[in-house]
Every structure is written in structure tokens, then in C-alpha cells.
Nucleic acid binder design. Structure first.
Length: 494
RNA sequence: GGCCCGUUCGUCUAGGGGUUAGGACGCCAGGUUUUCAUCCUGGUAGCAGGGGUUCAAAUCCCCUACGGGCUACCA
């Protein structure tokens, strides 16, 4: 009866299930999904790029689809590509994804295709060569009036196009525009520029195989639109700053008679601990020697994060959790670190590092050696043994001020002068438990930490170990770090 | 100036007409632990503001405020 009177009351219940993971991909067909991630290779990737790779990559995996890594390297003057970045980005993408991108496309290799489509556009009459300056055209755009070039005949357009190609025109003399409608409500869409000329004689494309070969280059909206069609992209997921780009490209797709892919957008992300870093600025700062390189731990690059020991799994979990909301957000790095802790803690061997080490001499009755677990939750990882036949031990200065201490895993001691008198091997009271080292099993070492824009090198006493470079360890009572050498550890996070 | 997008616990996120508004991080309390780690248990706290539609609004509409973006011969 309820079913007849008020069916909606019964239907509601199942809608309450909470979604886990990424939202549903609209109009997706298993095995027939093509996504792409399209960075400008003007430097290695930074934290924000990871979102593009992770989100697109996860959808590709989920739908048995393909992920295209596309280098949008069509500017040689304002944001010139960095030759080494192509390879770096591809490697980093593979690391982050856990699989190699299915296809790699380099826009600068595709120029002939873009020319073909530009000519097709000119011949079909939905594009024209515009000889107005940028400033002059801005007036037309604001006033909703058509520029005189808009009325060019096909012959005129083809003639002018030829002059762009053969170098009769110089950069700034002419651009190819897509005819939309100068009265469109959104000024950003009015007869937008599709191709322009670049001074590749003085600003050759950094890829030697391209160099100064082309004078005419497509702009992002045109290049991306044509390439997405050529590659059969079905879904575009990118930042919402490109929303108007979608609208421009949709107008072009209508001219060509193509169907525009499904789109999704994410909002702007700021990381509380990092201000605004731009790839171009980082590149200048590195070249000026302000940073040690792209993997300088102070930098928000993927290389730096990887060097610090942030795992690809943690990065993926982090971005998947943020999803694809269009909200502009500001997230703390601690969220990423929390994901990372979950990834590494179970494996990370424990190690002692004594900051501001003070040496004491053990006195009183005690065993000649003591063993503690490599990992408290995993006995199978073995023991660390400290030889105590020689009395020298190390304790952190801050701890030594406390006077009465429990040396972790060993004994209760009382500090007097430079003596550490063993009072009891068993724990007798609730005095503070501190980490310590025997002089015999330790050497001077360094803990490097990136703190508030500074690179600090903390010297101290490092427990001897044979872990290979790259091992993530947990420094007792300090936090996680990555082994850079037997005596140097790069602090990761607490 | 024009146009576009957004606003749910401190932070991030789920939910998109009827929910005790769920989860994660953080924080607090307790437990395990010879690390201020990990792990477990519990607690804390939220629908930007104002109108409207509706029996019913966090959810739909309008306005305002705030945040972000585009309007480049950058991507």
C-alpha cells in the first residue's frame, strides 16, 4: 500500500550509501575510455601536477582505458620547454601511476597536423587570418564589433596564411582566429586566437629535432582541441581554470563537426606550507643557485617529495581523497604525511639519532651488551645490539638535563657529571624513557631537514646501520627519514 | 568592466528534497607499547548570510557577501 501511495518513501533508503573513491565517470564504457594528462615540460612536475596524473590515471585503470601523456610544448618564448623535463616527467608519471602511460604524444611533433586543420578551417571559412594587433583586437572584443579581417575571402586568408608560413610576416604581424561570434556573452570566447607566429630564429624550440623548423605555432586551445580529437580522447579532467577553454574548444568542435569529450574539473589547490611556486620561478631560482636542484627538499616538486620518501601510494591516496571537486582549497601537508606514515611505518626500521649528543660513561653493574627490536611490532625484523664493554654512551642534551632517565630497552640511570650510573636494569619507576646510543655502535652523522625555507643540517650521533640509500627509517622519538648515506638521513616528516 | 566556477565540522570530503548530516586528518581523553612512533576505543566540532518554492530545503530558485579563474600572439 505504501508502495502505491508514496513509493518515494521506499526508494530513498538505497541512495544513502556513501560513495568511496572517485566519482562516477559519465558516459564511460569499459575498455573504451581515453584520458590524457597534458603538462608543459618547462620543468619537472610539481605537487599540483600529481593531481592530474593520479586522477586521470586512476580513471584509466578503473575503466580499462588508456592514459595519454601529452607534452604541450608549443611555446618557445614565454614558457620554453626544458629538454630534460620530457624524460623526467615520463619517469615521474610512471612512478606515480604504478604503470607507464599508454601513449606519449609530443605536441611539437604534431605541427603538420595542426597546420592541416588550420588550413581546413581557413578553407571552410570558420577561421581567418587577423592582422590586427592584440591591443587593437581587444577593442573589438570589448565592443562586440567585428575586426575588418573577419571578412577576408578564402583566397585572401590562404594568401596571408602562406605569408605566415614562409616568413614574410613576422611574429606579431598576424594570427589565425577561430570565427565564433563577436556578440557572445562571454568575451573570452569571441573570435579566439588559434595560431600565432614565434621568433624561433632567436628562440628556437629546445628540442633539437624541432629547433627553428616552424614559425607558426598553435596556441593551447587549438592544439589541445585538435590533438584530443586525433587521439580519440573521451574524457577530459583538468583544472577549472580551463573551463572557458572547454567552451572555446566546443565552438571549434562544432565547426569541425566533432563531438566534444566529457569534461570534469577540479578547483585550485594551495598547500598551506608552500606559498605560490611557479615552475618558471623555480627554474630561475635553481639556475641562480638558490636551491640545490629540482629535488631540493624545500621545493614542492615531485622529485623532492620522492627524495624525501613520500611514496607514490601516499600521493595517490591523498589526491583520490580530494577527488574532483570544483572547490578552491588549501590543504596542510600533514594530511599527505599521515597517508605516508600509513604506508611506511610497518616497514621502517627503527634507528637512533642523538641530537646535540652528550657523552656519558656507564658505571655500575650492567650486561656487556643489550639488544632491542629493529621494529617493535615485527620481531622478525631482528635485533639491534649495543656493545657496552666500553662505557661511552650518548644521550641528547635536552634529555640529559632531566638527571634520572630510563635508557630505552636497557636500564634506569642517574646522571652525575659525566657519569651515568646504572641503578636498575628493570624499570623501577616512571622516569622518562629516552633513546640513547653506545659509542661503539655509532658515528657522527647528519640529519638534514627542510624547515621553513631553510635547509638545516643537524649534526649528531648516528646509529650504525647498513641500510641502502633510499631506505625509509624511523628515527626514534624524532620521525621518519630517508637514508641518503650511512651517516646522512633526510628528514621526511614526524 | 564583462563572463565563468565555487562556499557542509579547524582542514579535506560524503550526501543533492524527509539523514541521529557520515568519514578522514587535526585536536582532546583513555588503552596497548621500555619511542613524544604505530595500533585500538571514545569524544570534539559543520550545511556563508538573506529571501523564495515546498507539507518538508544542507539539497531546488533568486539576491548578497566572500574565494578562485578566464577575458594572452602563456600553458
Amino acid at each position: 500500500m505504501l508502495n502505491e501511495e508514496a513509493p518515494h518513501l521506499l526508494e530513498k533508503r538505497e541512495k544513502k550509501e556513501r560513495r568511496v573513491g572517485l566519482p562516477e565517470l559519465k558516459n564511460a564504457e569499459k575498455g573504451n575510455v581515453v584520458l590524457r594528462f597534458a603538462p608543459n615540460p618547462n620543468g619537472p612536475m610539481s605537487f599540483g601536477h600529481a593531481r592530474g596524473i593520479v586522477i586521470n590515471g586512476e580513471y584509466a585503470k578503473e575503466w580499462d582505458g588508456e592514459l595519454i601523456l601529452r607534452f604541450d610544448d608549443t611555446d618557445t618564448v614565454v614558457k620554453p620547454p626544458l629538454v630534460s623535463a620530457y624524460k623526467d616527467i615520463e619517469t615521474e608519471a610512471g612512478w606515480l601511476l604504478g604503470y607507464a602511460p599508454h601513449r606519449v604524444v609530443i605536441a611539437s611533433d604534431q605541427i603538420p597536423h595542426y597546420y592541416e586543420h588550420a588550413e581546413q578551417m581557413l578553407k571552410a571559412g570558420f577561421g581567418y587570418v587577423c592582422r590586427c594587433s592584440g591591443e587593437a583586437f581587444k577593442v573589438f572584443r570589448v565592443d562586440k564589433t567585428e575586426c575588418p579581417c573577419r571578412g577576408n575571402s578564402t583566397e585572401t586568408n590562404m594568401n596571408l596564411w602562406g605569408k605566415m608560413l614562409d616568413g614574410t610576416f613576422k611574429p606579431g604581424d598576424a594570427v589565425v582566429r577561430v570565427k565564433t561570434d563577436m556578440t557572445l556573452k562571454n568575451p573570452a570566447l569571441r573570435d579566439w586566437p588559434a595560431l600565432r607566429m614565434q621568433d624561433t630564429a632567436n628562440h628556437p624550440h629546445p628540442r633539437p629535432e624541432i629547433g627553428s623548423t616552424y614559425r607558426v605555432w598553435p596556441l593551447l586551445d587549438f592544439q589541445s582541441a585538435v590533438e584530443d580529437h586525433l587521439q580519440g580522447v573521451t574524457h577530459i579532467i583538468r583544472g577549472k581554470d580551463l573551463m572557458d577553454s572547454t567552451r572555446k574548444q566546443t565552438l571549434l568542435y562544432e565547426h569541425f563537426g566533432w563531438e566534444y569529450p566529457e569534461t570534469m574539473y577540479w578547483g585550485r589547490v594551495k598547500v598551506h606550507e608552500w606559498g605560490g611556486f611557479s615552475t618558471s620561478q623555480m627554474r630561475r631560482d635553481i639556475e641562480a643557485g638558490h636551491f640545490t636542484g629540482w629535488d631540493d627538499p624545500r621545493l614542492p616538486t615531485l622529485a623532492a617529495l620522492q627524495r624525501r620518501g613520500i611514496t607514490a601510494e601516499a600521493l595517490r591516496a591523498f589526491w583520490i581523497e580530494l577527488g574532483v571537486t570544483q572547490k578552491d582549497i588549501s590543504v596542510p601537508l600533514t594530511t599527505l604525511f599521515s597517508h605516508n606514515t600509513k604506508q611506511i611505518d610497518d616497514e621502517a626500521p627503527r634507528l637512533a639519532f642523538i641530537r646535540s649528543p652528550q657523552q656519558f660513561n656507564l658505571t655500575g653493574e650492567h650486561p656487556s651488551s643489550v639488544s632491542v627490536d629493529v621494529h617493535p611490532n615485527h620481531e622478525e625484523q631482528g635485533k639491534r645490539t649495543f656493545d657496552l664493554t666500553s662505557p661511552a654512551i650518548w644521550i641528547e642534551q635536552d634529555d640529559s638535563a632531566k638527571g634520572e632517565l630510563r635508557l630505552k630497552g636497557f636500564a634506569d640511570v642517574t646522571l652525575t657529571g659525566t657519569d651515568a650510573a646504572v641503578q636498575s636494569i628493570d624499570r623501577q619507576d616512571n622516569r622518562p624513557i629516552v633513546h640513547w646510543l653506545s659509542d661503539a655502535q655509532s658515528t657522527p652523522g647528519t640529519l638534514i631537514l627542510a624547515d621553513d625555507g631553510e635547509l638545516l643540517e643537524l649534526n649528531g650521533q648516528m646509529e650504525d646501520h647498513a641500510y641502502p640509500v633510499g631506505t625509509m627509517v624511523q628515527l626514534e622519538r624524532i620521525g621518519y627519514g630517508r637514508v641518503l648515506s650511512p651517516t646522512v638521513i633526510l628528514f621526511s616528516h614526524s
